[in-house]
Amino acid sequence: MAVPQRLPPVVRQLASDRLGLARAAQTKRSRQLKARIVDADRVVQSICPYCAVGCGQRVYVKDERVIQIEGDPDSPVSRGRLCPKGAASEALVNSPKRESRVKYRRAGSSDWEYISLEQATDMIAERFIKSRRESWEQEDDEGHPLHRTLGIHFLGGATLDSEENYLIKKFFCAAGALSIENQARI
């Protein structure tokens, strides 16, 4: 039964909201509040980027920006729940600390400088080739094949996607840069 809002709160509560947790406790302002996600342009299904439980997430996007991340009730793994980390992942994506530009520190310098992504890719490719050449081992002392460099070390992967790990393994193996490692060892 709808009780007219103009009645005093105590009457409203007694009439239709005994615990005083619903309409009786509302003000005009709180009545008009809407969930953040109501205005979302779209929602996509995702997976929490933190631990290996793999909780389902729903990512709400507005104006091409993530506005909220919630648990996915459809997931048989998590049934809609997220822990503090998963629940904070919107703040990971939109963290005030997040850096969106490439930075470069010269040898011996005391500061960062900004360079373009293209320039960084080019410089890293140059260094990769040079280091690889300088530390290349074609064979061991007894003539057994090695085809490798131990002059380059790669660390990372546990937070990356499987497709990313695959391409990294593929390229680094082909380059003989075999020392790729990740958190699984750590």
């Binding site: 997976i47 996607d161 499987s162 790729i180």
Partner: peptide
């Protein structure tokens, strides 16, 4: 421990 630590062992960055 990590979102894809199992995956990075199966398709290894090792």
């Amino acid at each position: 421990g990590h979102a894809n630590i199992q995956g990075s062992t199966d398709i290894p960055t090792l």
